[in-house]
């Protein structure tokens, strides 16, 4: 790694830290100014929670001191305080429970979306302008344009209500099939387009022609030369993909009643469980920012030709 790469990585890490700090600060102060929020002494909150909040953050202390306590607890202990609505539970425990299901859901969706997307994209590029290429491109354009909640609702209607092949409820393992398909479709479509265009780009390069001239077999050209280089731009999509999956899971878990963090987040918004909203926002934001950071750095390390300035 040359010094320019190192400088870039350091710059990106600083930016990520600043972003996370901004998210935490904005969340804290936004919550502070909400009437009936967790830091006001109104009756919206049950007395026991109120007492816990009082003991934890000292609600009569100056704002800046409460902010300090909150930030310190979050950074050092992952402590987001007690839930305002679920009695006796800590926000971090609820998030932990939800994450178990959601991470499983999101990971499987990401993996299938990536693999199928790359394979279909490569096929489309190799069979350029054929019927197969056209079909793949039309389908991927459709899935990019359709909002995730529409895709999920329609899949629910077709496969759970009309055909009755799969359960509509996402509490069982079989019930997770539809949510996983829904979440993976948009990443798949994006990977198809990315892979197709970069593959076409690579196939037109001189070294591919040289390899062909040398008599290298077609399989070897595709797997040894073309695909390897065509996959590099795909790395840039890993960050946005995670962001999509996180926000997509909010609606998907709602549609299929999956007991994950997305559903917990949405119901905490509706119930005005503000500490829970804060905690979940911060956890999900950190996840997205860190994943984007990793995918950006990876891209730079894998392909040092890329100049970000």
């Amino acid at each position: 790694m040359d010094s320019k790469t190192v400088a870039y990585i350091i710059k990106r890490i600083i930016l990520a830290i600043v972003t996370i700090w901004v998210v935490m600060t904005v969340t804290f102060f936004v919550m502070h100014f909400v009437p009936g929020g967790p830091f006001t002494s109104e009756k919206a909150v049950s007395p026991s929670v109120q007492a816990a909040m009082e003991a934890k953050y000292g609600l009569d202390k100056p704002l800046i001191q409460q902010y300090g306590t909150y930030m310190k607890d979050v950074v050092t202990k992952f402590d987001f305080g007690p839930s305002l609505k679920q009695k006796g539970r800590m926000v971090v425990d609820i998030i932990g429970d939800g994450l178990k299901t959601s991470v499983k859901l999101g990971l499987i969706a990401a993996v299938w979306g990536t693999i199928v997307g790359i394979v279909l994209g490569a096929i489309a590029a190799l069979k350029r302008n054929s019927v197969i290429d056209r079909i793949i491109m039309v389908i991927s354009t459709a899935f990019i344009s359709m909002p995730g909640y529409i895709v999920g609702s329609l899949l629910l209607l077709i496969f759970a209500v009309n055909l009755r092949w799969l359960p509509a409820n996402g509490t069982t393992a079989k019930g997770l099939i539809l949510p996983i398909i829904t979440l993976g479709l948009s990443p798949m479509a994006n990977f198809v387009r990315l892979t197709r265009s970069s593959m076409l780009d690579v196939l037109g390069q001189d070294y591919i022609r040289t390899a062909r001239a040398k008599g290298v077999s077609n399989t070897k050209i595709i797997f040894g030369h073309a695909l390897k280089n065509a996959l590099i731009p795909d790395i840039t999509y890993f960050g946005p993909m995670l962001a999509y999956i996180v926000t997509g899971s909010l609606v998907v878990e709602q549609i299929f009643s999956v007991p994950g963090i997305g559903r917990a987040f949405v119901s905490s918004i509706i119930n005005r469980d503000y500490t829970m909203v804060m905690g979940t926002t911060i956890v999900l934001a950190v996840l997205i920012v860190v994943m984007t950071l990793i995918s950006d750095i990876l891209y730079k390390v894998v392909d040092p030709r890329i100049d970000f300035s």
Binding site: L15, V22, V23, V26, V246, V277, T281, T292
Partner: peptide, 13 residues
């Protein structure tokens, strides 16, 4: 910084 904020989460919040 704004660019790297997770926009959807901030919007929901």
């Amino acid at each position: 910084v704004f660019y790297s904020l997770p926009d959807m989460l901030m919007i929901i919040l």
